[in-house]
Amino acid sequence: MDFFDQYLKEQISTGVLILIVILSRTVVSKLVRRYAKTSQIIERRTNLVIKYINILINILALITLILIWGVQAKDIFITISSIATVIGVAMFAQWSILSNITSGIILFFSFPFKIGDVILIHDKDYLVEGEIEDIGAFHVTIRSKEGEVVIYPNNLFFQKGISIIKKPTNNNNDFTD
């Protein structure tokens, strides 16, 4: 019983933190889904953004929980900076993965094109024209007129010019100019 009496403040704070995490995850999920519904964004992309935001909320909650239970802030920052350094060095070679994930989130919120749009990517070496079939976390899948499937990394959409040639109409699968 001594443990429960000695750490009552920490236990109450932990309970409040858990409630805040549950509430914030629920609110954020509803807000992102509402935004996606008004923008007609695909459910798969919505779930991906919610997943990333929930990971961020969980990391922040873990840091707060560690602070609640008495670990010194300077020790946390030393640990986080050491972990960030190791991850940074390890991920330096994989910068494109992080770049593609970030680009995928930006594409989700800026919504310049959607599945079904016919686009032309202005690449001096290899022009890509086709219909967007899927927009994922790392890449966009495009089907050319010849039936060729082209996988284009998300980060390249911010480095190349893109023309939206045709958008699908709301009534059927016909395209408008």
Rank of each mutant, 00 (worst) to 15 (best):
F3L: 15
Y7A: 15
K9C: 12
Q11L: 15
S13F: 15
T14H: 11
I18K: 11
I18W: 13
I20K: 09
V21D: 08
I22Q: 05
I22F: 15
L23R: 02
V28E: 06
K30T: 09
K30E: 13
L31V: 11
R33Y: 10
R33K: 13
R34H: 09
R34K: 11
Y35V: 03
Y35T: 07
T38H: 12
S39T: 09
Q40A: 08
Q40G: 07
I41H: 02
I42G: 03
I42E: 14
R44P: 02
T46G: 04
N47C: 02
N47E: 14
L48Q: 06
L48F: 12
K51M: 12
Y52V: 06
N54S: 13
N54G: 12
N54L: 05
I55G: 13
N58K: 06
L60C: 13
A61M: 10
L62K: 05
I66P: 08
G70H: 10
G70V: 11
V71W: 14
F77K: 11
F77Y: 14
T79V: 12
T79N: 06
I80W: 01
I80E: 05
S81C: 08
S82G: 14
V89N: 10
M91N: 09
Q94G: 04
L98R: 01
G104W: 00
G104S: 04
I105L: 02
I105E: 02
L107N: 03
L107Y: 00
S110R: 08
S110K: 12
G116P: 06
G116S: 04
G116K: 04
G116L: 08
V118I: 12
L120K: 12
I121R: 12
I121Q: 07
D125T: 13
D125P: 02
D125G: 14
Y126A: 14
L127K: 10
G130P: 06
I132C: 03
I132V: 10
E133S: 06
E133N: 09
D134T: 07
D134P: 00
F138L: 09
I142Y: 01
I142A: 00
R143H: 00
S144W: 04
S144H: 10
K145E: 11
K145R: 09
K145L: 09
E146K: 15
G147I: 05
E148C: 12
E148D: 15
V150F: 11
I151F: 02
I151A: 06
Y152I: 01
Y152S: 01
Y152G: 00
N154L: 01
L156E: 05
F157D: 03
F157G: 02
G161I: 03
I162R: 01
I162V: 07
I164L: 03
I165C: 01
I165Y: 01
K167G: 04
P168N: 00
T169H: 12
N171I: 15
N172R: 13
N172K: 08
F175D: 12
F175H: 15
D177H: 07
